[in-house]
Design a protein around this nucleic acid. Sequence first.
RNA 1: GCGUCCUUAGCUCAGCUGGAUAGAGCAUCGGCCUUCUAAGCCGAGGGUCACAGGUUCGAAUCCUGUAGGACGUACCA
Length: 584
Amino acid sequence: MDKQKKNWATLVAGALTKAAEEKKLELSGLADRIIVEHPPRPEMGDLAFPMFPFAKDFRCAPPAIAAAVVEALGTDIPGEARPAGPYVNIFLDRSAMIRDLSAQVAEAGDSYGTSDLLKGQKVMVEFSCPNTNKPLHLGHLRNDAIGESVSRILAASGAEVQKVNLINNRGVHICKSMLAYQKFGEGVTPESSGKKGDHLVGDFYVKFNTWAKEDKSAEEQAQAMLRKWEEGDKEVTELWTLMNKWTIDGISETYKNTNISFDRYYYESDTYLSGREEVLKGLEQGVFYKDEDGSIRLDLSDIGMDTKVMLRSDGTSVYMTQDLGTAIARHRDFPFDRLIYVVGAEQEYHFQVLFHALKKLGYSWAEMLHHLSYGMVNLPEGKMKSREGTVVDADDLLQQLSDMAADEIRNKERAEAVGDVEDTGRKIALAALHYFLLQVSPYKDMVFNPRESLSFNGNTGPYLQYMSARINSILEKYEEKRDEYASLKPDFSLLNSDAEWELVKNISSFPEAVKMAASDLNPSVVAAHLYDTAKNFSRFYHDCPILGGDDKVLTVTRIELTRAALQMLKNGFELVNIPFLSKM
RNA sequence: GCGUCCUUAGCUCAGCUGGAUAGAGCAUCGGCCUUCUAAGCCGAGGGUCACAGGUUCGAAUCCUGUAGGACGUACCA
């Protein structure tokens, strides 16, 4: 599709020049001003070139220019051109295009949709970044979904991608669950309680908060524990190591269940010290200054902001300190051309400061840092609040969805056909969840309505899976009867229904969609494209019998199109982390 | 107060970077299963694209202002 657009843009540019010459007009730079778009309705053509921009040059009305351009294009063109008011509309040569597309998709296979847009670029993507004091919630799931998908989309666009996670495993919040465990834990472990480690630790974090309401000294005790931790106290360190492992093991299981993975982990406990050194070095260099209160600060008045603390007056680190250390360590480990931080919009200020600080410290790569800021997931009643217990737990949600999907399979009496009902249920749940989270542009806040949001009907992940499972089933049936068709060759001129043509256009514009998603860092572009394709296939499936007809050549030809559609859908699923199901 | 972002159908969201009659899903109503999976398909109703100006041949899209909302403006992360 991309190639077609370029070809036609060149042809139209030539025709414009020719038309201008006939009018004895000297015009330059016409080609740069040509706009290609799609007509609003299929029967108007496949491509449209508006002639408005040339009205002044030609000193005549756009419809007259359109007519002249069509005249100048002549008949020796790959398709047909028609003037339509102020537009030149193009009808592509369908059978040639379908033939090419089918060959192209078959040859590319799993790599259909990939490009070399970002070839040679090293891109690091940071996402998830959990605290080790509680399990993941719905907000993390959005973060993970975006981070994983963006990474896959960038990789598909030719970049060398490294996915990294930063474990926030130090700080007073970590000490809170530790303290509560010491007080109320009675030696319970994930094994003895049968609980996932992150949930167990999270329970103690909650316990701390209820305890702290009664006992005013709780907060103070937690601070004291943090100091002991920083001093390297043996008992505290051991408990910290143990409980961290529980949480990380638990969270890793959630990652595994959601098909999220990382190439490298960073730990705040490792990077806060190097960050501190960096701040002290910056102080010597005069990049930072020591405030009257003893804290080390960065003056941001040059970019119209206030000052920001880099190191506390007692010498301990803040979030900024360790992020400085982490960024530097990362560039050393993997000299990236771009580092993308997938972090909530509430931290925009933090990243402005971080990037600015690194720039002032003289790191040239500070220019290559990017905050991919995403919006919040809210509930119909408003924000998720841990204090009110309205936080949607990631594991619970997944389990609930899986159960719902499994029930659905049984209700539809598909249990026998799918085989492993539980596993299929989990995969449907993932599709529902990931599609739901990724169909919205990252930067926007979104509403999660537990009752309605993750339905399996309509514009959803399971719909996409359902369509592809049906396609797969057709192809399997075809394979069974392969002998009947063995000697036949497809004839693409037979595919002349609108449903078929729309599907073709859709499949052929998939690579463009992936590129756009990559340049915008926006998986929703891919999600929307998948839905369009599935929807178009649905119509094709309904209107055009594939295996049933009498014309075997037509069957063979439609099978080619069906194969291409399935390949494209599968490739797209991979990019938005939706499992393909051969049966459901 | 200042800064950043958001506002499109009753609800949840798209809208190809300024083009032709603004689209989906859910919800509501009406059709379609002895034929490749009805988690489906087809149709109907539902819009002053928050509001007011501006730029432009042309604005949901760009600019300015106003009104609502979210977030931030910590020696929290």
